[in-house]
Design a protein around this nucleic acid. Structure first.
Lengths: 188, 188
DNA sequence: ATTAATGAACAGACAGGTCTGTCTTTATTT
DNA sequence: AAATAAAGACAGACCTGTCTGTTCATTAAT
């Protein structure tokens, strides 16, 4: 198999396992078995399990941002396009592999002083906030520049609680509730 | 030491360690060392680490509910008393031992099919929702009975994202933002 | 064109450490 | 004297990461 393809296979396999079972409960041996790859091969691509964790976070984030951008762009312009954030989440929730937010899950699993991973996670969340700002700005052009970041942060909070709580309660009520609340705070 | 006191010591020590370092990264040996207790003693009180985890969740929850009820009851009646939820969270955030929500952290660490722990966590969250309902009902007596649960759930979502996001970003902006949003949705 | 060399991946043993949970032995307390 | 707890050895499983040696495909050199 080609060098870069092997890497991709490892990242995808590890991502699925990390996301489903958690980082600490997934062993390297399980990853290589599943990926059909030798241990030395894995360690030639990643110098440690932590390195693989970073690749996992990046992979998930890239895929996620692409999907959510594509999904919302298909919704009608205006309020509905912003609210589509929650429709996206709902379809994500319905997926049999849904297991909440990988960032939150990972933060709970790593030692407090692991700055590398924490930094990556914060970066990813800021990318989401930035996307929401763009979404709000493009759908509410009358909104003053100053108000956009504040509003986007609030929508972000609603999004985050919707994903965490639908996961915790294994029920989508949190998504509906957050969407309602979002509807309330968007300019009419 | 007295039998029940030994149990309390173990639970408190385990709770601190589980909360600070995470469930999977805290070993039984570390708990007994810290608690000054023999391993056989621990296993005479708890049949497994999972059992100890349940005791940890219960302990944290009991303490937490007591404190948040006491804190909010001291705030002036009306809107302010409900908003005091977020002031409580802020002081909690400032604590050097703050490490987010133990329920969310634990959910991320255990296998998906651990129904015992999941059930306990859901129960605890419903206790929080119930408390918020009571808080809302007693501070907004004009509110119809039907509207209370819906409103309480929304406040709950704001509370949950405030705790999770202040933890993730290691910054209290999420608490302020959630409080503002809560202020907005409370009847004037 | 044939051979040699290089790079990549495979297979899996191994080291050295961790984990949970059990068990025995010794000490303390009541 | 009986019960309780301490101390810690131990079993057995699992973990990450290293290392040796083999296979195979592609490239370079003759």
């Amino acid at each position: 198999m080609k060098h870069s393809l092997v890497r991709d296979t490892i990242v995808e396999t590890a991502s699925n396992l990390f996301y489903q079972k958690g980082y600490n409960l997934t062993g390297i041996n399980e990853i290589i078995r599943e990926a059909g790859v030798a241990k030395a091969t894995l360690y030639s691509h990643f110098k440690s399990k932590e390195d693989l964790c970073l690749a996992y976070l990046e992979f998930k984030n890239t895929t996620f941002l692409k999907e959510i951008k594509s999904f919302t762009s298909k919704a009608p312009k205006g309020k509905k396009q912003v609210l589509a954030l929650f429709d996206f989440l709902k379809s994500f929730f319905k997926d049999k592999d849904f297991n909440g937010c990988w960032c939150i899950n990972t933060i709970s699993e790593i030692p407090k002083d692991n700055e590398k991973i924490r930094k990556e996670i914060k970066k990813e969340k800021y990318q989401l906030i930035t996307f929401i700002e763009e979404l709000v700005a493009s759908n509410f052009p009358k909104l003053t520049k100053k108000k956009i970041p504040t509003l986007a942060k609030k929508i972000y909070l609603l999004y985050e609680s919707a994903i965490a709580e639908s996961h915790l309660h294994q029920d989508p009520w949190a998504i509906d509730s957050a969407k309602e609340l979002c509807d309330l705070i968007l300019p009419k």
